[in-house]
Design a protein around this nucleic acid. Structure first.
Length: 264
DNA sequence: AGTACCACCTGACGGC
DNA sequence: TGCCGTCAGGTGGTAC
């Protein structure tokens, strides 16, 4: 599922395939993914412009549009979203919900089988982040700010890590990996960690996110002691060899290892 | 404030 | 073979 590392990889993909190409036309295959913008508005405002740079905040990706008016193309990948670029007359990929056709023959498709992703236009990234009440990006937040933000919170660590207004970018899979690498039971409460251990959790979070990006979110390139590649029905714990257990925490399936994860 | 549950959405998968 | 229920989890809404 697209979380911060996945979106970072999409950002780099966008940068290498779509920057500085003039948009000739826009095809909206499904209006379900449009966020506060009509098909007409999107298809009307993009042609003639190009994406000049990109930014990521949490799981949201923004493409800076050229032109007199400031504007950003907004992308959120939901649960099954991705980007696909190609050159020439080939057919668009299956489930291409929005397609940009560039003047030079290149194309970029926002692919989203389950239509839970979003495409839109925003005037200002900071304003958007504020309006959505998104917390600091999980890879940009300072250690001290992280510790302060979590200190005194009630509820589970998993809930806090996934709370986008506390910290933007982490979802179910990476919160599981962070707790696994930290050796913490998935139901551990924030209040069970003192500031020193919250600091250590920050270090683990950085390590997990950076390592995932280095691996290009490819499970076959992830470290041998990661549990994410084994995160399915009968997966085994890479640390103890026993079957991973499943548990519901904050309404989601957690995969965890009783031998490798315990209360602090 | 935190949690539970629902809706949106569709492909995969297991049971029968 | 094919139908059907369940699951997957992103956001956002509601209720408690």
């Amino acid at each position: 599922m697209p979380e911060l590392p996945d979106v970072q990889v999409f950002k780099e993909y966008l940068d290498s395939t779509a920057l500085h190409r003039e948009i000739e036309s826009v095809d909206v295959g499904s209006t379900d993914v449009l966020e506060d913008v009509s098909k007409r508005e999107l298809a009307g405002s993009l042609p003639g412009r190009s994406i000049e740079s990109s930014r990521r905040h949490g799981k949201w990706l923004f493409g800076e549009l050229s032109g007199d008016e400031p504007g950003w193309l907004l992308l959120h990948f939901g649960m099954t979203g991705s980007l696909e670029a190609w050159k020439g007359e080939d057919d668009p990929p299956e489930h291409a919900r929005v397609r940009l056709d560039f003047e030079d023959g290149w194309h970029l498709a926002f692919v989203c089988p389950r239509k839970l992703g979003r495409v839109g236009l925003v005037d200002d990234v900071e304003v958007f982040v504020e309006e959505r009440e998104l917390g600091p990006d999980a890879l940009e937040v300072e250690r001290e700010t992280f510790v302060e933000a979590l200190s005194g919170k009630r509820g589970t660590l998993k809930g806090a890590l996934m709370n986008q207004s506390l910290l933007a970018g982490i979802g179910n899979e990476y919160s599981d990996e962070i707790l696994f690498q930290a050796g913490l039971h998935p139901r551990t409460a924030v209040s069970e960690l003192d500031e020193e251990r919250l600091g250590e959790l920050f270090d683990t979070m950085r390590e997990v996110l950076e390592t995932a990006i280095e691996a290009r979110v490819d499970t076959s390139r992830m470290p041998d002691d990661w549990h994410l590649p084994h995160r399915h029905g009968d997966g085994t714990c890479p640390k103890c060899g026993k079957n991973l257990q499943r548990l519901a925490v904050v309404g989601l399936s957690v995969y965890w290892s009783p031998d490798a994860q315990s209360r602090p």
